[in-house]
Design a protein around this nucleic acid. Structure first.
Lengths: 188, 188
DNA sequence: TGGATTTCTGACCAATCGTTTTGAAAAGAC
DNA sequence: GTCTTTTCAAAACGATTGGTCAGAAATCCA
C-alpha cells in the first residue's frame, strides 16, 4: 500500500555503479547521483541509507554482475582451459576504464569499511578459483612439473589486476590479448 | 629581499605527496594539506597555484623520486639481470600502499590533465626501459628463441602494476618475491 | 469517497569545499 | 630608522557538500 516507488532498484544501482566506477567515492557527488539515477535525495536515503550505503550496494551489484565471469572458473572439468577462457573474457570493452573493485582498493583509506571487505572477498574468491583450476591442472598433468599452484595463482591474479590498469592507459583488447598469450606461457 | 620563506619546497612536496598518495586527489582536502605541510593557504597558492598545481608538482616529485629505481634498468650491460634487480627493488615497504602514479591512473577522470600526462610519460618510460633490456637480452642470447620483446615488456609492466595493487591488499614483500620469481620464468 | 500509508518534490540545513583578501610581520636596501 | 618587498596568519568568500524535513501527490483499503 502507499504510493508506489517510481524507480527500479536494480536500474538505479546500475547507474550509480557506473558513476562510482568512473569517478570514485569521493569524486562522485550526491547531486550527480541524483541526476543520473533520477532518484530524489529523499528516496536515495530511504532506500540505501546515504552515499556510503549506496556505494556499498553499487559495489556489491558490480561484484555480483561479475558472476558470469567467475562462473567460467567453475566449469567442469577444472583446468587450464578455464583459466584461458577466463582471461579472454576479461578483454571486453566493459573494462575499458578498469575495474570498480580495483578502484576501491586505491581508495582504501577513504571508502566505507564494508566496501573494503567486499573487495577483499572478491579478490580472495577469484584467486581461490584460479588456484582450484591450477591444482586440477597439476593433478591432470597439464602443468609442468615443479610448479607451485599457489604462487602461480597469485601471479596470474597480479597480472590480471595490472592488465585492467593498462586498459585505462589505452591498451586495446587486441593488444591485451597478446599480453594474455604471453602470460599463458607460464602454464606451458 | 622581502620576508624569507619559512618552508622548504621539497619538504612540503614530500609531505603533500604522501597525503595525495594515500587519499587520492578528491579524497585529500586543502585543510589537511595545510595542516600536514605546515604551509599556510596563501603561500600554498603562491608557490603551487592551488590544489591542482600542488597535485601535479607532488606527482612529478614522486616520479623523480623513482629515478634510482629506473636507473637500475639503465645499468650496463643491459639485460635480464637489470630486470631481476628492478623487480626486487620494488619490494620495499615504500610501496606498501601501492604506487602514486598507478593511483592517478585509477582516478583518471578526476585528476588534473597535466598529472595524467605525467603518468603516461612515466609508464611509457618504464616500459621502454624494460624493452631495451629485453632486446639486449635477446641479442645476447639470454632470452629463449621466439620471444617477442615488445609483448614481454608490456606483460612484465602489467605484472608490476598488479603486484603493487596486491601490496595494498596485504601481500607482504616475501610473498611478493615469490610472485616475482614466478613471473621470471617467462624469461627462462 | 475518505482515511491510511508511502513516495515524491523542492526548499532548507549546517558544514565544508577550494579560493581570495586583508593587515601584520619579517627581511634587505638605503 | 624608514621604505620596499615578500611572506605569514587568519578571517572571510561564494559555492557546493552530504543530509534533512515539511507538505503535496499517489496509491491501497475500507
Amino acid at each position: 500500500m502507499g504510493r508506489p516507488k517510481s524507480y527500479d532498484r536494480t536500474e538505479v544501482l546500475d547507474r550509480a555503479m557506473r558513476l562510482f566506477w568512473r569517478k570514485g567515492y569521493e569524486g562522485t557527488h550526491l547531486s550527480e547521483l541524483v541526476e543520473i539515477t533520477g532518484l530524489n535525495r529523499f528516496s536515495l536515503y530511504n532506500e540505501f541509507g546515504g552515499k556510503e550505503g549506496l556505494y556499498g550496494a553499487a559495489l556489491e551489484h558490480y561484484v555480483s554482475g561479475l558472476g558470469d565471469l567467475l562462473a567460467i572458473l567453475e566449469r567442469e572439468p577444472l583446468g587450464l582451459a578455464n583459466i584461458r577462457a577466463f582471461h579472454r573474457a576479461q578483454l571486453v570493452d566493459e573494462f575499458q576504464e578498469g575495474c570498480f573493485a580495483l578502484n576501491t582498493v586505491r581508495e582504501k583509506s577513504v571508502v566505507p569499511p564494508s566496501a573494503w571487505s567486499t573487495v577483499e572477498g572478491f579478490t580472495r574468491g577469484t584467486r581461490e578459483r584460479l588456484l582450484a583450476n591450477l591444482r586440477a591442472a597439476a593433478r591432470a598433468g597439464e602443468l609442468p612439473a615443479g610448479r607451485d599452484p599457489e604462487a602461480l595463482a597469485a601471479t596470474l591474479a597480479a597480472f590480471d589486476m595490472g592488465l585492467l590498469s593498462l586498459r585505462t592507459l589505452g591498451v586495446s583488447p587486441p593488444q591485451a590479448l597478446r599480453l594474455v598469450e604471453e602470460i599463458e606461457r607460464l602454464l606451458e
